[in-house]
């Protein structure tokens, strides 16, 4: 058993990382794109709310981008960003938009009309109203979107293996093949799954802490849009 555990965590030196190092790398490559996606999605969503006609084309474009296979993205990007983490992270950020933009739009739109009227009537300007009323009330929907985007991003990082070992935990899959060490495959799959579950649980916790105002029992009310095709 000790021998198996030793082999399990014995990461080949060509990856230049310990197991913990790979976990850190994986999280960075998965979470930074989602954070960037969120920063990008907030203004895009606000534009879609402000100009209703903009929403359908924006939805269309993000969906089309989501349909572009990550490999194709890499091929295009490699000319500009080379075999780097950035080449992996840019497509992931773009993919997160397809979940985050609708989540924010629906969340902000779910604020009741009388709440908005009351805010306006009390003398809230548009900015104050957005940051102090609409955004806080949209938090449950935004976090629901973030959960889907994050889990999907964590699973997608592994594809980075194909461009010069930029796939963090995914690189273990490649090494498992060339060194004929199946336990590395298990390591990659199990660790990735555990990371996804942990980060998801963390987001649920953040949601609970941020929204003490939500009636308990309706926590799952704002369901995230279904994950389209996570296996990519």
């Amino acid at each position: 058993m000790n021998g198996f555990l030793h082999d399990f965590f014995d990461i080949p030196s060509d990856l230049q990382h310990s197991w913990i190092g790979l976990v850190g790398l994986h999280l960075r490559e998965a979470l930074l794109p989602v954070a960037a996606g969120l920063l990008l999605a907030l203004p895009i969503a606000q534009l879609c709310i402000r100009f209703r006609w903009l929403y359908p084309p924006v939805l269309g474009i993000t969906t089309v981008l989501y349909a572009v296979p990550s490999l194709a993205f890499f091929v295009v990007l490699i000319n500009y960003t080379g075999q780097t983490e950035l080449t992996v992270m840019i497509p992931l950020a773009v993919y997160s938009l397809v979940v985050l933009v609708p989540a924010i739009v629906d969340g902000v739109r779910s604020v009741p009309q009388e709440t908005l009227s009351a805010a306006t009537a009390m003398g809230f300007g548009p900015l104050r109203r957005y940051f102090q009323v609409q955004l806080p009330i949209a938090v449950p929907a935004i976090i629901a979107g973030l959960r889907v985007a994050t889990v999907s991003s964590i699973s997608l990082v592994s594809v980075g293996m194909l461009i010069g070992n930029q796939g963090a935990l995914g690189n273990l899959l490649h090494d498992a093949q060339i060194y004929n060490r199946p336990e590395l495959t298990w390591n990659s799959v199990i660790t990735t799954a555990l990371l996804a579950i942990l980060v998801d649980a963390l987001l649920v916790l953040v949601r609970v802490l941020l929204t003490p105002w939500m009636p308990s029992g309706t926590a799952g009310r704002k369901q995230a849009p279904a994950l389209k095709d996570a296996a990519r």
Partner: peptide
């Protein structure tokens, strides 16, 4: 607006 109180149907409270 800040010098005029406003009460609306269903109260329109800030749920958060």
């Amino acid at each position: 607006r800040r010098s005029m109180g406003y009460v609306i149907q269903n109260a329109g409270l800030f749920q958060h």
